[in-house]
């Protein structure tokens, strides 16, 4: 089947997509956008988090066909050219990245949280990121990163 979808602001057409392919597979293997990760492909880890029409979703749980005619934003679409998004910058600054396999999903999830809540409490951060597994950091520096990004955002 053919799918037309807007990814990071650009309309993309994909041919020969199999019925069983997920949006994650299409992004990673057919569109050359491997930023969204594939840690479980079962909806349990959040490493594949992307925006679909502005809502964060697990791309591994979205059938490719469901993305037809819709807007997808991936981690690759968050920076403006060379300028990192403040959430990305905060992850770097606080040391929230080790192996980094969880990072793209967490960056998107944190980005979404800070769009909805400008100064989240620690419990709100924990709740919002509960679907994103990280095996390396114990999450402490991820919390630091979100707090820092929130502070920066509040200061404009």
């Amino acid at each position: 089947m053919r799918i037309t979808t807007t990814v990071n602001g650009t309309e993309r057409e994909v041919d020969d997509v199999w019925a069983g392919e997920s949006l994650l597979y299409v992004l990673r293997e057919r569109l050359g956008l491997p930023g969204a990760k594939n840690a479980c492909e079962q909806g349990e880890c959040g490493s594949c988090t992307v925006y679909l029409d502005g809502e964060p979703v697990c791309a591994c749980l979205v059938a490719a066909g469901q993305a037809n005619g819709r807007q997808v934003t991936t981690v690759e679409g968050l920076a403006e050219g060379e300028r990192l998004h403040p959430v990305q910058e905060a992850f770097l600054e606080t040391g929230a990245v080790q192996c980094g396999f969880c990072t793209p999903g967490l960056v998107v999830a944190a980005h979404d949280l800070l769009q909805r809540v400008s100064r989240p409490s620690d419990l709100e951060i924990r709740e919002a990121l509960a679907g994103n597994l990280c095996r390396c950091t114990g999450y402490e520096k991820i919390l630091d990163a979100v707090r820092l990004a929130a502070d920066r955002q509040a200061q404009g």
Binding site: R28, G35, N38
Partner: peptide, 18 residues
């Protein structure tokens, strides 16, 4: 800072599965 950090936060770092 990690030299691979920027690539990792932008999704451009090439993992084995990429």
């Amino acid at each position: 800072r990690r030299p691979d950090g920027t690539l990792k936060v932008t999704g451009e770092f090439a993992y084995a599965s990429d």
